[in-house]
Design a protein around this nucleic acid. Structure first.
Lengths: 169, 169
DNA sequence: ATTTAATTGTTCTGTATCATAACAATCGAA
DNA sequence: TTCGATTGTTATGATACAGAACAATTAAAT
């Protein structure tokens, strides 16, 4: 079904085509979206997050909250700015996130006596229990992805490639 | 630098620890964020988009607009819903996007005479020129990424792995 | 020691992204 | 001809993300 609308003869006037279709040589420089790294990365990331979000819908847990709880579990006592920065979250936006976790009884801010400005962040006992369930759900999610990738070796290859992108020159 | 903060004796009471630190066995089930596929994917995607956005800041072009112009360049005449769906954009949100491109004189909606409801989308002559510049900028961006990855072969490997994730079971 | 600068958590604000519902115009099928 | 589906559109709300400003506090400069 080729476009037979008004098309000027395209007289070889040593110039460029004037219409909404690019010349063959031009087209050569235009990649399909499927060949664009950023585009594919984004689609894959959206897919993974979608699966993640569905997995944790019942627990009412979002990716950002998951990551914060994870860090608190492994390294309790860090202060807000430290966790926020590590996760790439602006400290201004971290406040509401932490408020929510605190209101749910999963985490708490403790006044650090060494520095009266800062708070050190910790899981509550409930938070610890929650994290255990959380990790069970996460494992199922991650296993699903590894299987799709073809195995742990492929997972490692993927992560290694993603590393190269993020690594500083 | 081991953690020597207040740690309760963790008396072997056949139970779980009650504090904000998980037991060693628990910790084994808690992955560092660095080992989580979704987390790494997201960080890499953010990096790539950041580079992309900076590359196109001067042209005042966003990723979504780039993708729409790309599709119109390669396949002029598609209607809004078709492009939107292909790009994973809700058709409701596509409207403002297309409005903007039209206001800038880069693209246009033509009334399709076969279906008075739909519009067929096309680049304007200006849009064609714009896309040429756009692709030059994009090539530099993409080349940068390929170099970071280590070459075209690594790029292909990456894309192939991302494919497996998105591919249906 | 006193002033000055920097940090921490916070609030406020603005913007971009994304999803959902409703609607008129139009089309296709029953 | 009627009824359901589609197309583009508007309106609305939720969420993510970034920046400015501010009080309390700490650290550094003089």
């Amino acid at each position: 079904m080729s476009d037979t609308t008004t098309r000027p003869p395209e007289t070889a006037k040593r110039g460029r085509p004037r219409l909404d279709e690019l010349s063959a040589t031009d087209l050569g420089t235009i990649p399909a979206l499927e060949a664009i790294i950023g585009y594919r990365l984004r689609r894959a990331q959206l897919y993974v997050f979608q699966d993640f979000i569905e997995s944790f819908a019942r627990m009412k847990l979002r990716p950002a909250e998951f990551s914060v709880l994870s860090v608190m579990a492994r390294r309790p006592g860090l202060k807000q700015t430290e966790i926020a920065e590590e996760l790439g979250i602006k400290r201004a936006n971290f406040v509401a996130l932490m408020d929510s976790l605190e209101k749910r009884g999963l985490a708490e801010r403790r006044k650090a006596d060494t520095d009266k400005r800062s708070h050190s962040l910790h899981l509550t006992p409930e938070g610890v229990k929650f994290v255990r369930k959380m990790m069970a759900v996460w494992t199922a999610h991650e296993d699903r992805l590894v299987e799709k990738l073809g195995g742990p070796r492929e997972r490692d290859r993927l992560i290694e490639l993603l590393d190269r992108i993020v690594a500083p020159d």
